[in-house]
Design a protein around this nucleic acid. Structure first.
Lengths: 153, 153
DNA sequence: TATTGTTATACTCTATAACTATA
DNA sequence: TATAGTTATAGAGTATAACAATA
């Protein structure tokens, strides 16, 4: 990132200079891209697509398909799609729901739980944020929470 | 977001509590999602897909197709795809490159320049960050830059 | 021989609609 | 009648391979 001055409204560098909304959007997008690329890479290390990895993470506790759809921000048919693949690999099983016979509980197998923990460990190590001290991460977190707080969901 | 305590490694709430790498990843992803949704919505207001809008933004200065591909993080065929649509709407023209007759300069038309500025103005207004003061944005920006600084690209 | 942009094509991901079995 | 999950299908969006023009 160069630090060429803000010359005009047309310059693309205006996006990363100053503290305009647009500048912050560019920075958030860049940070997200790096963390996402990191997670994508580590997921691939275990032959998991990013969505499969996210599903595995979220199934630390059993969930129904709809609950999983909610946290993955996707529609139920996609959960079927993802869970099919995890089930074929023996990482997840569909169990009958104790209260509602229409629903199913998605539960990690022993192998699924192990892979989940390995994945989380791997993602945490050599993360794009590894160079920050605990204090720096706390400050960053504080600012992110503040930014999210007043924003409309 | 509840504030249930960090109970164990399996709890999904561990993702948003504390200042672990994972917690920050979740926060960055959430903020990015909101800003992205906002931009998607404002782009749609002008009948632009997010990628078309991003291309329009980046063409504040003329670029070749490969340069545009680089900033859009995509492959050249997709640039052809996007530029085709922008050109049909009269927002962009493909001009011969002055130095290299293989390449083309992608240049905004007068209409394209106007739409670009309207779009940027619209995105800046009522942004998800509008509730932050100028000082708060400055602090947030400072932390984001720090996080990006040492991270491997 | 390498590179620019295009065409043709395939693949991934996600969404909608229709179906079943329960509630 | 409404809801949970599945199936079938279609649509974006993106990627790879082959090609023509030029370097």
């Amino acid at each position: 990132m160069s630090s060429r001055a803000v010359q005009d409204t047309e310059g693309q560098d205006a996006a990363v200079v100053g503290c305009s909304t647009r500048a912050i959007r560019a920075l958030v997008a860049e940070l997200h891209k790096r963390m996402d690329a990191h997670q994508r890479g580590r997921s691939a290390d275990f032959d998991l697509t990013p969505t499969q990895a996210k599903a595995l993470e979220e199934l630390g506790r059993p969930k129904t398909a709809r609950e999983l759809a909610a946290v993955l921000y996707c529609e139920p048919p996609n959960v079927t799609y993802v869970v099919d693949k995890l089930e074929k690999r023996g990482l997840v099983v569909r169990e009958p729901h104790p209260q509602d016979r229409r629903a199913k509980q998605l539960v990690l197998t022993e192998e699924g739980r192990e892979l989940r923990l390995e994945l989380l460990r791997r993602i945490g190590r050599d993360s794009p944020l590894a160079h920050l001290s605990r204090e720096e991460r706390a400050v960053l977190r504080e600012q992110l929470v503040r930014a999210l707080d007043g924003a409309q969901a």
